[in-house]
Amino acid sequence: MNVFRLAGDMTHLLSILLLLLKIYATKSCSGVSRKTQELYAIVFIFRYLDLFTDFISVYNTFMKVVFIASSLAIVWCMRFHPVVRRSYDRELDTFRYFFLVGASFALALIWHEKFSVQEVFWAFSIYLEAVAILPQLVLLQRSGNVDNLTGQYVFFLGAYRAFYILNWIYRYLTEPRFTRWIAGTSGVVQTALYADFFYYYFISWKNNSKLKLPA
Protein backbone atom coordinates (compact mmCIF):
# COMPACT_ATOMS: atom_id res chain seq x y z
CA MET A 1 0.00 0.00 0.00
CA ASN A 2 1.48 3.32 -1.04
CA VAL A 3 0.25 6.82 -0.32
CA PHE A 4 -1.25 7.28 -3.82
CA ARG A 5 -3.27 4.09 -3.56
CA LEU A 6 -4.57 5.04 -0.10
CA ALA A 7 -5.45 8.56 -1.27
CA GLY A 8 -7.22 7.04 -4.30
CA ASP A 9 -9.28 4.67 -2.14
CA MET A 10 -10.19 7.42 0.32
CA THR A 11 -11.29 9.92 -2.35
CA HIS A 12 -13.29 7.16 -4.10
CA LEU A 13 -15.00 6.29 -0.83
CA LEU A 14 -15.66 9.97 -0.05
CA SER A 15 -17.22 10.57 -3.48
CA ILE A 16 -19.71 7.71 -2.98
CA LEU A 17 -20.54 8.54 0.65
CA LEU A 18 -20.95 12.24 -0.16
CA LEU A 19 -23.40 11.44 -2.96
CA LEU A 20 -25.36 9.10 -0.69
CA LEU A 21 -25.48 11.61 2.19
CA LYS A 22 -26.38 14.45 -0.17
CA ILE A 23 -29.28 12.45 -1.65
CA TYR A 24 -30.44 11.39 1.81
CA ALA A 25 -30.14 14.85 3.39
CA THR A 26 -31.85 16.79 0.58
CA LYS A 27 -34.30 13.94 -0.19
CA SER A 28 -33.59 14.64 -3.86
CA CYS A 29 -31.65 12.86 -6.59
CA SER A 30 -32.36 15.37 -9.33
CA GLY A 31 -29.49 15.46 -11.81
CA VAL A 32 -28.13 12.06 -10.73
CA SER A 33 -28.19 9.25 -13.30
CA ARG A 34 -29.65 6.12 -11.72
CA LYS A 35 -28.24 4.12 -14.60
CA THR A 36 -24.67 5.21 -13.80
CA GLN A 37 -25.24 4.36 -10.13
CA GLU A 38 -26.66 0.94 -11.05
CA LEU A 39 -23.64 0.28 -13.26
CA TYR A 40 -21.32 1.13 -10.33
CA ALA A 41 -23.27 -1.30 -8.11
CA ILE A 42 -22.88 -4.03 -10.76
CA VAL A 43 -19.16 -3.16 -11.05
CA PHE A 44 -18.55 -3.67 -7.30
CA ILE A 45 -20.64 -6.83 -7.01
CA PHE A 46 -18.91 -8.59 -9.90
CA ARG A 47 -15.41 -7.35 -9.01
CA TYR A 48 -15.60 -8.46 -5.40
CA LEU A 49 -16.70 -12.05 -5.99
CA ASP A 50 -13.34 -12.92 -4.41
CA LEU A 51 -14.67 -11.71 -1.03
CA PHE A 52 -15.61 -15.31 -0.34
CA THR A 53 -12.54 -17.01 -1.81
CA ASP A 54 -9.45 -14.84 -1.19
CA PHE A 55 -8.53 -12.97 1.96
CA ILE A 56 -6.08 -10.11 1.37
CA SER A 57 -6.42 -7.89 4.44
CA VAL A 58 -9.03 -6.58 6.88
CA TYR A 59 -8.77 -3.21 5.12
CA ASN A 60 -9.42 -4.82 1.75
CA THR A 61 -12.44 -6.81 2.93
CA PHE A 62 -13.89 -3.86 4.85
CA MET A 63 -13.57 -1.49 1.87
CA LYS A 64 -15.17 -4.02 -0.49
CA VAL A 65 -18.17 -4.44 1.78
CA VAL A 66 -18.53 -0.65 2.19
CA PHE A 67 -18.33 -0.06 -1.57
CA ILE A 68 -20.99 -2.69 -2.32
CA ALA A 69 -23.30 -1.53 0.49
CA SER A 70 -23.04 2.22 -0.24
CA SER A 71 -23.55 1.86 -4.00
CA LEU A 72 -26.57 -0.40 -3.38
CA ALA A 73 -27.90 2.16 -0.87
CA ILE A 74 -27.77 4.91 -3.52
CA VAL A 75 -29.63 2.72 -6.02
CA TRP A 76 -32.16 1.72 -3.34
CA CYS A 77 -32.84 5.39 -2.47
CA MET A 78 -33.34 6.33 -6.12
CA ARG A 79 -35.64 3.39 -6.82
CA PHE A 80 -37.63 2.89 -3.63
CA HIS A 81 -37.31 5.82 -1.24
CA PRO A 82 -40.84 7.30 -1.21
CA VAL A 83 -39.62 10.92 -1.42
CA VAL A 84 -36.28 10.64 -3.23
CA ARG A 85 -37.62 8.58 -6.13
CA ARG A 86 -40.03 11.36 -7.14
CA SER A 87 -37.12 13.69 -8.03
CA TYR A 88 -35.50 11.17 -10.38
CA ASP A 89 -35.15 12.55 -13.94
CA ARG A 90 -36.55 9.40 -15.54
CA GLU A 91 -37.34 10.91 -18.93
CA LEU A 92 -33.81 12.35 -19.29
CA ASP A 93 -31.93 9.26 -18.11
CA THR A 94 -32.53 7.20 -21.23
CA PHE A 95 -29.05 5.92 -22.09
CA ARG A 96 -29.22 2.31 -23.34
CA TYR A 97 -26.93 0.94 -20.71
CA PHE A 98 -27.49 -2.73 -21.46
CA PHE A 99 -25.33 -2.07 -24.48
CA LEU A 100 -22.46 -1.11 -22.16
CA VAL A 101 -22.98 -4.21 -20.02
CA GLY A 102 -23.02 -6.47 -23.10
CA ALA A 103 -19.99 -4.86 -24.72
CA SER A 104 -17.99 -4.99 -21.48
CA PHE A 105 -18.83 -8.66 -20.97
CA ALA A 106 -17.94 -9.51 -24.58
CA LEU A 107 -14.59 -7.75 -24.18
CA ALA A 108 -13.98 -9.61 -20.91
CA LEU A 109 -14.54 -12.92 -22.72
CA ILE A 110 -11.84 -11.91 -25.21
CA TRP A 111 -9.35 -10.10 -22.94
CA HIS A 112 -8.75 -11.44 -19.43
CA GLU A 113 -5.82 -12.57 -17.32
CA LYS A 114 -7.10 -16.11 -16.94
CA PHE A 115 -10.14 -17.90 -18.34
CA SER A 116 -12.12 -18.57 -15.19
CA VAL A 117 -15.50 -17.35 -13.95
CA GLN A 118 -13.94 -15.03 -11.37
CA GLU A 119 -11.29 -13.60 -13.69
CA VAL A 120 -13.70 -12.96 -16.57
CA PHE A 121 -16.10 -11.19 -14.20
CA TRP A 122 -13.18 -9.22 -12.74
CA ALA A 123 -12.15 -7.99 -16.22
CA PHE A 124 -15.85 -7.29 -17.01
CA SER A 125 -16.11 -5.07 -13.92
CA ILE A 126 -12.96 -3.15 -14.89
CA TYR A 127 -14.27 -2.45 -18.42
CA LEU A 128 -17.73 -1.54 -17.15
CA GLU A 129 -16.33 0.90 -14.58
CA ALA A 130 -14.41 2.66 -17.36
CA VAL A 131 -17.65 3.51 -19.22
CA ALA A 132 -20.13 3.71 -16.31
CA ILE A 133 -19.98 7.53 -16.25
CA LEU A 134 -21.53 7.76 -19.77
CA PRO A 135 -25.25 7.78 -18.72
CA GLN A 136 -24.40 10.52 -16.20
CA LEU A 137 -22.61 12.50 -18.92
CA VAL A 138 -25.66 12.25 -21.22
CA LEU A 139 -28.06 13.21 -18.40
CA LEU A 140 -25.93 16.22 -17.53
CA GLN A 141 -25.80 17.38 -21.15
CA ARG A 142 -29.58 17.09 -21.45
CA SER A 143 -30.63 18.66 -18.16
CA GLY A 144 -27.83 21.10 -17.44
CA ASN A 145 -28.71 20.36 -13.82
CA VAL A 146 -25.77 20.62 -11.45
CA ASP A 147 -27.75 21.17 -8.23
CA ASN A 148 -27.42 17.74 -6.76
CA LEU A 149 -24.25 16.55 -8.41
CA THR A 150 -22.17 18.50 -6.02
CA GLY A 151 -18.80 19.93 -6.83
CA GLN A 152 -17.37 17.68 -4.14
CA TYR A 153 -18.64 14.49 -5.77
CA VAL A 154 -17.12 15.45 -9.09
CA PHE A 155 -13.90 16.59 -7.45
CA PHE A 156 -13.39 13.43 -5.37
CA LEU A 157 -14.27 11.09 -8.22
CA GLY A 158 -11.67 12.81 -10.39
CA ALA A 159 -9.10 12.74 -7.60
CA TYR A 160 -9.66 8.98 -7.24
CA ARG A 161 -8.83 8.45 -10.91
CA ALA A 162 -5.75 10.64 -10.77
CA PHE A 163 -4.40 8.96 -7.61
CA TYR A 164 -4.86 5.47 -9.04
CA ILE A 165 -2.82 6.35 -12.11
CA LEU A 166 -0.09 7.78 -9.86
CA ASN A 167 -0.29 4.54 -7.83
CA TRP A 168 0.29 2.41 -10.93
CA ILE A 169 3.22 4.57 -12.03
CA TYR A 170 4.70 4.30 -8.52
CA ARG A 171 4.23 0.52 -8.39
CA TYR A 172 5.60 0.10 -11.90
CA LEU A 173 8.76 1.97 -10.83
CA THR A 174 9.20 0.31 -7.43
CA GLU A 175 7.93 -3.28 -7.83
CA PRO A 176 9.73 -5.76 -10.06
CA ARG A 177 7.58 -7.03 -12.93
CA PHE A 178 4.56 -4.94 -11.95
CA THR A 179 2.19 -4.69 -14.89
CA ARG A 180 -1.53 -3.96 -14.97
CA TRP A 181 -2.41 -4.05 -18.63
CA ILE A 182 -6.16 -4.50 -18.20
CA ALA A 183 -6.62 -2.16 -15.24
CA GLY A 184 -4.10 0.37 -16.60
CA THR A 185 -5.58 0.66 -20.10
CA SER A 186 -9.13 0.80 -18.73
CA GLY A 187 -8.02 3.33 -16.15
CA VAL A 188 -6.71 5.66 -18.84
CA VAL A 189 -9.94 5.31 -20.88
CA GLN A 190 -12.00 5.96 -17.74
CA THR A 191 -9.95 9.04 -16.89
CA ALA A 192 -10.37 10.40 -20.43
CA LEU A 193 -14.17 9.92 -20.29
CA TYR A 194 -14.17 11.49 -16.85
CA ALA A 195 -12.27 14.52 -18.21
CA ASP A 196 -15.05 14.89 -20.81
CA PHE A 197 -17.64 14.62 -18.04
CA PHE A 198 -15.75 17.21 -15.98
CA TYR A 199 -15.64 19.56 -18.97
CA TYR A 200 -19.43 19.45 -19.39
CA TYR A 201 -19.95 19.70 -15.66
CA PHE A 202 -17.80 22.83 -15.57
CA ILE A 203 -19.63 24.43 -18.56
CA SER A 204 -23.00 23.57 -17.02
CA TRP A 205 -21.97 24.92 -13.64
CA LYS A 206 -20.68 28.12 -15.25
CA ASN A 207 -23.92 28.63 -17.21
CA ASN A 208 -26.05 28.08 -14.13
CA SER A 209 -24.00 30.64 -12.26
CA LYS A 210 -24.57 33.13 -15.04
CA LEU A 211 -28.34 32.57 -14.90
CA LYS A 212 -28.33 33.52 -11.24
CA LEU A 213 -27.42 37.15 -11.97
CA PRO A 214 -29.78 39.50 -10.10
CA ALA A 215 -32.78 40.56 -12.19
Binding site: H12, R47, D54, N60, M63, K64, F67, K114, A183
Partner: peptide, 10 residues
Protein backbone atom coordinates in the same frame (compact mmCIF):
# COMPACT_ATOMS: atom_id res chain seq x y z
CA UNK B 1 -3.90 -19.99 -3.90
CA UNK B 2 -0.62 -20.91 -5.61
CA UNK B 3 -0.19 -19.70 -9.18
CA UNK B 4 -3.22 -17.44 -9.10
CA UNK B 5 -2.67 -13.69 -8.97
CA UNK B 6 -4.68 -12.05 -6.23
CA UNK B 7 -6.23 -8.69 -7.05
CA UNK B 8 -4.90 -6.58 -4.21
CA UNK B 9 -6.42 -3.31 -5.43
CA UNK B 10 -10.01 -2.23 -5.05
Amino acid sequence: PLGQRIHDEL
